[in-house]
Nucleic acid binder design. Structure first.
Lengths: 351, 351
DNA sequence: GTGAAAGCGCTAACAT
DNA sequence: ATGTTAGCGCTTTCAC
């Protein structure tokens, strides 16, 4: 089990200092000795203890990732981006999951503790943070980047959520729609997470600019899941009065829910209802969902690279970057049918 | 930055040993002293260096997770399970992503190196491993568990993939289907991963037992993604000759692809084609997909618990467990229509 | 180019 | 109940 640098040194007939230098590719070791040491290390299965070198150098070669979820589209895609970048650079990844809805405060403090003295840099994935938490993060003096949403006082890599929502809404408007419902996400209202708010604002401003009235009765809350999308459509269709001809969904997963439920209710998409999402989820193409593409993987990769560059000594490497987005027009949106039949049921599911 | 146990000790007027005991809740510290030390530590923002304590104890309080992907359903769900269990137990999670398809061998060796001297236990997520890799894992003498698939010589937590495939197939057969296509996953053939193979075998044995001929021309390969499901259906429908009335998909994501593409092609599900999957993906209910449910989250949680129990001194805690599964009948499967119209196109997408 | 020695910050016997 | 002391395994001056 415990094969140490001493063991290698003894076998090689050199000192541990030389072993250390040889293993890390430092100069001041003759090619011959290095080769010999490397061979012996390989042979003995020697791997430097990260605890020991961490203690000696003050560096753990580990980047921490703070995430509220790990199994939702944005977060798992971003995690993949982090892994990709960390890879060849020889860094480890330490994952801190805040556990989304469940177990709020106590665990958060716990995590703050765990983070310290353990990692060289921290990447925060689109987490709603309290003011106090932000303060704590700054106290821990290490490179820090936020992915997927702006946080005051922190550098971040994210799309311009306001512009994205605006563009999505304009797409609907340009197709002639005026009766547009809004399905917004708001899964952490207490913490005032910026992303849902920005998307709502983008939608509303766009409507106002086009002089289209926003109907409050077509406003629905979702939690970024497909299930909440289904619920929203049902409640929209159950309510008396006129019905929207289009719906702006703040995320693709909610848009999926709307589309799947529409099929059940016999509502034709895009015949009766145009649906647009935001994200370009991996299933969106297969579903034929019109959406605005963003790449959490790319964003996370960029953020990780900045962190690593900063650690490598490039001061100022970590900075705020606005990531790109792109409208993907597919089959779920269509021009408004001027004279369309009333929203009668067409047929049962799958018929 | 560097507030050490010494600092706390000095302020508190005690020795570092007492600080260490107090911080870790060990006995042999008077309640008064403990309280005082805890207060000062809190005040100074003291957190023990994990490198230092790791070096001193030989334990890092970190569990490693080895995964081929982090952004696919099974893996991200499992990761969530690991996080949940690790949480309150004060353990950290170190993530090693093998990077799925890209960059095969070199990186794998790299990871093996990183793993050692860094973690106390290892959880392997459903990874196709070479014989040599398995050998290496055993050499690293630490608790080890595999989630989601059997690996020779290792304890594992997984469903009985053979039985699951059998049950799914039997469901189709019991509905009267005889013309059943097979869409199997096989994303890592070179490494002979057991799961796809077991699922294929379960399907075939079930067919043979029911004395139903297996038609080779209805066999399709997929890679567990929706896109591959779409492709499979297209090629199935393009080919001349009779068409299947049902399709067994080795994963829900591939089944999604089949269903979405069916809609495009005007094939009614389940009218013309019954579709069954395996997994019970988070979107399956919304899609109305009949499937066999498994919970990677639960499996990972069980596996992690065993690992932690073993580390806590319960020898024999790590062992092989067969996880449960359950048939979820929804809207994508139906009894065979004895006299059905030919597979004519019904209408365009979304119409 | 290589070695000796002094830590890094903690833990764990052993004293007291 | 508390302090003293000796490492844990590596890195890093500083000599040679």
């Amino acid at each position: 089990m415990a094969v140490t640098a001493d063991d290698v040194a003894t076998v090689a007939g050199v000192s541990t200092a030389t072993v250390s230098r040889a293993m890390r590719g430092l100069p001041r070791v003759s090619p011959k000795t290095r080769e010999k040491i490397l061979a012996i290390a390989e042979d003995l299965g020697y791997v430097a203890s990260s605890s020991a070198s961490g203690l000696a150098t003050g560096r753990t070669r580990t980047v921490g990732v703070l995430a509220p979820y790990v199994n939702r589209w944005f977060f798992s895609a971003a995690l993949d981006g982090v892994c990709q970048e960390l890879h060849g650079r020889g860094y480890n990844l330490s994952l801190f999951n805040l556990g989304g809805g469940r177990s709020r405060n106590r665990d958060r403090a716990f995590n703050r503790t765990m983070v310290q003295k353990h990692i060289d840099a921290l990447l925060v994935l689109c987490t709603p943070l309290t003011k106090e938490e932000i303060k704590h993060l700054h106290q821990v003096d290490m490179p820090l980047i936020v992915i997927g949403g702006p946080v005051i006082g922190c550098s971040s890599v994210a799309i311009d959520d306001y512009a994205v929502a605006e563009q999505a809404t304009n797409h609907l408007i340009s197709l002639g729609h005026k009766d547009i419902a809004l399905l917004h996400g708001d899964d952490d209202s207490a913490l005032k997470f910026a992303v849902p708010i920005l998307r709502i604002k983008g939608f509303k401003d766009s409507m106002v600019r086009a002089e289209i009235p926003i109907r409050k009765q077509w406003d629905r809350f979702g939690d970024f899941t497909a299930v909440s999308g289904r619920r929203a459509l049902v409640s929209l269709w159950e309510q008396p009065g006129p019905r929207p001809t289009a719906i702006f969904c703040a995320s693709d997963e909610m848009a999926f829910g709307v589309i799947f439920e529409a099929r059940r209710l016999g509502i034709s998409v895009p015949g009766d209802l145009s649906v647009i999402g935001i994200d370009d989820h991996e299933l969106s193409e297969a579903v034929g969902l019109t959406t605005i593409r963003q790449s959490p993987t790319d964003q996370a990769q960029i953020g990780t690279k900045m962190l690593l560059d900063e650690l490598a000594g490039h001061r100022g490497a970590v900075r705020t970057v606005v990531a790109s987005h792109e409208l993907m027009v597919r089959d779920s949106t269509a021009p408004l049918q001027v004279s369309r039949p009333s929203h009668a049921r067409a047929r049962g599911p799958g018929a």
